[in-house]
Amino acid sequence: MKRAFMPSLFKNKRPRTVNILAAESAERQQLTDGAVSGDEDLSDLPSDTKAALTYLRSLFDVHRFEGRIPPILLKHQLYSVIQNKTQVDREVDQLRDKKEIKIFRYGKDGDEFCIVFTADYISHVRKIATQQGVSALIDRFIPEILEKMNNITFSRQTLCDVHGFKDKEITMLVIAGMLTVRDVGSWWLSIPGAGIFMKNFSKGRQSVLRAIKKAKYREILQKELEERKLQAVKKLSMMYHIHDVIGAELVTKIKTTSGIILRLDE
């Protein structure tokens, strides 16, 4: 019978005998531990999601792309690190509200999300701006829009009327890669140079899935997959792609006695 949820009523809560000496020493122990006393400010500790994001960011090697893109992570990679998806969603929204990360949309219908740390994004934008020669414009763009607002869609009203950007300047931003046309009179914020990332990412994902599809029973030990040297996976590391396919639920992760097995879903 596997370990299942046990309501708290059935757990042993308090000691059976009241031992005054034991109780006192227990109290002292709790204070020295410093565990969950009311005075501690827990909001300074990084949340689980932030720790997971930092770990995923460490998997991304900017040098392999010659600095053309900032470290881009995918939201569903977090689902493979942290089990509770709803907690991940909530904490990602909190981090976005605190302006520590920026969330962009990608995919055919714009329904998948990718995450970039705000600091990385701004430094990348400045670098691109100096390369393209629009640094003055970008210097104006950054404090007004990037640092103040959280959303990623902009309408003509917001840009022209509220912030005073002219049509020509908007065109320059689109050419630089900062904005992408979405509809007549509305734009999406985008990452300049994201094309390289998307190409390498989709090629790498296809290559990993093909490797699992060709294996016997359409499953493979994770260790074996890591040892395979696939050409398309060289830029973004293998662990990055493994987190991606697990989190996107294209593959199920099964713990076995010989290690972790990744099985292709249906």
Binding site: M1, A4, P7, F10
Partner: peptide, 10 residues
């Protein structure tokens, strides 16, 4: 409720 929960989770 606790017993019903314990049963449902098994």
């Amino acid at each position: 409720r606790a017993e019903a929960t314990r049963r449902t989770f098994r």
